[in-house]
């Protein structure tokens, strides 16, 4: 077994060169290069975490914006609804006013017409009374030969009309 047979002649060389080359490995690769490689990995992990956080933030932001948009939209809809209701009410009120005015006009026309009719009737009545009083005077004068003055005749006619 050369490992034992050559032990005395080679152990110093083996140990020396192992320390040299393993030392180079440790200092140059282990201490020099490995931290940089791991730094790159850490940097990437951090970037991925940051990107994920940013995406989450953007998502939350979008959700919040959607929420405010929805609120605004609801508000606008409510406003529009109120506007329509208002306009409806106003239109109803004006049409009611117009109707009332028309009604009033019709009522005054009607009442005017009624008074005109009443006047005409009372005028006609007065005429009838006059005619009746003259007729009474005439009838009395012809039948009884008595002269009845106009006033008495009229009151008599009035009495008769009121009774009849």
């Amino acid at each position: 077994m050369p490992q034992i047979d050559q032990l005395l002649e080679t152990f110093s060389s083996q140990i020396f060169w192992l320390l040299v080359f393993f030392g180079i490995t440790f200092v140059v690769i282990g201490r020099g290069m490995v931290p940089k490689v791991m730094g790159t990995v850490a940097l990437r992990d951090k970037q991925i975490a940051d990107d994920l956080a940013a995406a989450q933030g953007a998502r939350d932001d979008a959700d919040a914006q959607e929420e405010t948009w929805r609120e605004r939209e609801n508000e606008n809809r409510a406003n529009a609804q109120a506007l329509i209701a208002n306009a409806k009410a106003k239109a109803a009120a004006t049409s009611a006013k117009k109707l009332a005015a028309a009604q009033k006009r019709l009522d005054t026309k009607l009442s005017k017409a009624a008074t005109a009719i009443d006047e005409a009737r009372s005028a006609a009545m007065a005429e009838v009374e006059d005619v009746a009083a003259e007729a009474t005077q005439d009838i009395v004068a012809r039948l009884a030969g008595a002269k009845v003055d106009k006033r008495a005749a009229r009151s008599a006619v009035k009495k008769a009309l009121a009774n009849g």
Binding site: T10, W17, T25, V28, M33
Partner: peptide, 22 residues
Amino acid sequence: NIAFTNSALWMAITVVLLWAFV
């Protein structure tokens, strides 16, 4: 004695390849 042996040569090759790999 610290003669450069075939063993040392392969240690050197190991270091060089490992360095190249990393």
